[in-house]
């Protein structure tokens, strides 16, 4: 058993996630034939892409270490959906400005998080939790009285219908983002510095890494990714409704953990996280196909999450 666990290739989080996803698809197809049909898979991937994009930001913040975590992503997603919907308001022509404004808003929220965490030294959990409260309040203000905006037709098409007879645009977007993040984390100095501050902040400081600047930038990126997910969500559901983002907060963290990124920081990457997001969504939808109550589904879901976590690494013993 011990030898098995030591074999890194066999128990590499990415291999585990892929294996589990495949097993789940077989299982799902067995329970309800058609579960693993191409159309079904694509619609699952669309749902997963929303979570995956949010988890990208979450992933970066967690990689940066010092208990990095971003609970405000839920609020940003909701706000972004409202802002984007109101700016474009059903018009294709306004998509680009809407995207620009929304990303700016998301980035700005992240900037405040980053400044609070880095310079006032508020623990990330607390800072982003407080920010979540602010955003929930802001949502009420933004939505009140104003007719909530609608998605532009192109955006709806982008998020749900195949693009040029291939996959839906949102999946292409996700793929490009994944490639971009892999490149960023692996082939740029910035990416390596994220791992550096995540694994050993002291050593990073000694090797001239601008630790503060990078940490702030991670929160900014997290805000922007969440905003992007909010725009996609607007396209997916056609219009924005209250607090759509909140349900994504903790799943975005779990997806990161299932992707093999340690909450302690500095270890892991985005491919795993993307697979983690898929795993989570497939698991959820398999539970929906099983004909049991919502309650049973939740219990099985919770227990499965715990079980999987045992696979993904436990803390160290105190005795050496």
């Amino acid at each position: 058993m011990k030898i098995l666990f030591k074999n890194e290739n066999l128990f590499n989080p990415i291999t585990v996630a892929i294996t589990l996803i495949i097993i789940l698809f077989f299982l799902g197809n067995f329970i309800s034939p058609g579960f693993a049909s191409p159309n079904q898979i694509i619609s699952l991937l669309i749902v997963a892409s929303l979570l995956g994009i949010i988890s990208a930001g979450q992933n970066l913040v967690i990689l940066g270490g010092r208990e990095g975590i971003d609970l405000s992503v839920g609020g940003v997603v909701s706000i972004a959906a409202v802002v984007a919907g109101n700016v474009m308001d059903g018009s294709n022509a306004a998509i680009l400005p809407a995207v620009a404004v929304t990303l700016f808003v998301g980035g700005f929220i992240g900037l405040i998080n980053g400044i609070g965490v880095t310079f006032i030294k508020i623990p990330p959990l607390v800072m982003t939790l407080g920010m979540l409260g602010v955003l929930q309040g802001l949502l009420v203000v933004v939505r009140n009285g104003v007719p909530s905006g609608n998605a532009a037709p192109f955006l709806v098409h982008f998020a749900t219908k195949p693009l040029l007879n291939t996959f839906p645009g949102i999946l292409w977007l996700w793929l490009i983002l994944t490639l971009f993040l892999v490149f960023l984390l692996k082939h740029t100095v910035y990416g390596l510095r994220i791992y550096a501050i995540g694994t050993n902040e002291r050593a990073a400081k000694m090797t001239a890494v601008p630790v503060e600047l990078i940490r702030v930038s991670l929160f900014v990126l997290s805000g922007m990714f969440a905003a992007l997910a909010g725009i996609c969500l607007l396209g997916y559901s056609g219009s924005s409704f209250a607090n759509v983002g909140e349900q994504y907060i903790l799943p975005s963290i779990i997806a990161v953990v299932f992707g093999g990124t340690s909450l302690a920081g500095g270890k892991g990457g985005y491919v795993g996280t993307a697979l983690g997001a898929i795993l989570l969504i497939v698991l959820q939808s398999i539970l929906i196909t099983i004909r049991i109550d919502e309650s049973g589904r939740q219990m099985i879901f919770g227990a499965t999450l715990l079980l999987l976590m045992i696979f993904y690494g436990r803390g160290k013993m105190l005795r050496s």
């Binding site: 694994t199 050593a203 990073a204 500095g266």
Partner: peptide, 9 residues
């Protein structure tokens, strides 16, 4: 461990 390596990298 403290000042040098980026462990796991």
């Amino acid at each position: 461990k403290r000042d040098g390596i980026f462990p796991g990298r």
